[in-house]
């Protein structure tokens, strides 16, 4: 390979930066790659759990990307799925125990969805597509970038749902009391699960409208 003869790439070269920025929009894991929707929506009724979930996914994805990337030459391809699952499950257990120890109430709200990070397709997908064929540092950046793209969508959905559903952001009231006195009501529908799907559908609509090349034929 020519990569070894080439001089060392700087840590934040153009190519590496792209790994972080591209998943934020044009290659977003949720809206474009269609990965990791499973756990994405259930935690978006309020902003706080959405952010905690985003951070947890980021830690798990970056860490398991690095581990798999370090091990990539030693894993026989026939049993790679099991190896990947074990690495992911270990990371998720660590994150779960940390959440239980430090932010117990949020960990109760997230309930089974922390455990479901294991089967979150975004993690398996990135391990298969990227970490198995790349060096640890790009794999780390790829993990951070994809998890950031994932969190971004989570936060946008949670922002709208909490704002219109409860009139609050991070639990603080943002819609002034005078609005309520004039007859404004919180839209209870936004709290219900189906509205998360519809909000995401609208986000995809807006994104594809802006980036025409993403439109499906």
């Amino acid at each position: 390979m020519s990569a070894e003869t080439k001089e060392r790439e700087p840590l934040f070269s153009q190519k590496n930066l792209k790994l972080v920025t591209k998943p934020l929009n044009l290659n977003n894991p949720i809206t474009v790659q269609v990965l990791g929707i499973c756990s994405a929506l259930a935690v978006t009724a309020k902003l706080k759990p959405a952010i905690v979930m985003g951070i947890s996914v980021m830690v798990v994805l970056a860490a398991s990307n690095v581990v798999i990337s370090l091990l990539r030459k030693g894993i026989p391809s026939r049993i790679r799925i099991i190896v990947q699952l074990v690495v992911i499950a270990t990371m998720v257990i660590l994150v779960d125990q940390v959440l239980k120890a430090f932010v117990y109430d949020i960990s109760k709200q997230l309930s089974v969805f922390v455990g479901l990070i294991i089967t979150n397709c975004i993690i398996m997908g990135r391990l298969e597509a990227f970490a198995m064929s790349n060096k640890p540092w790009p794999a780390f950046l790829d993990g951070i970038g994809n998890a950031a793209g994932y969190s971004l969508i989570l936060i946008i959905v949670a922002f709208f749902r909490e704002l219109f559903g409860s009139g609050t952001l991070f639990g603080l009231q943002v819609i002034p009391q005078s609005f309520y006195e004039l007859g404004y009501k919180n839209n209870g529908l936004m709290i219900l699960p189906p509205m998360a799907l519809i909000t995401l559908g609208v986000i995809i609509w807006v994104q594809r409208y802006k980036n025409r090349e993403l439109i499906e034929k």
């Binding site: 809206t31 269609v34 219900l192 699960p193 189906p194 509205m195 998360a196 799907l197 519809i198 995401l200 559908g201 609208v202 995809i204 609509w205 807006v206 594809r208 409208y209 439109i215 499906e216």
Partner: peptide
């Protein structure tokens, strides 16, 4: 609408089914 084709409309439909 073109931008909604495929993924977008599937999410919205799922939401409506959920309701």
């Amino acid at each position: 609408p073109p931008a909604l084709r495929g993924l977008g409309i599937t999410f919205i439909l799922t939401g409506l089914m959920g309701i």
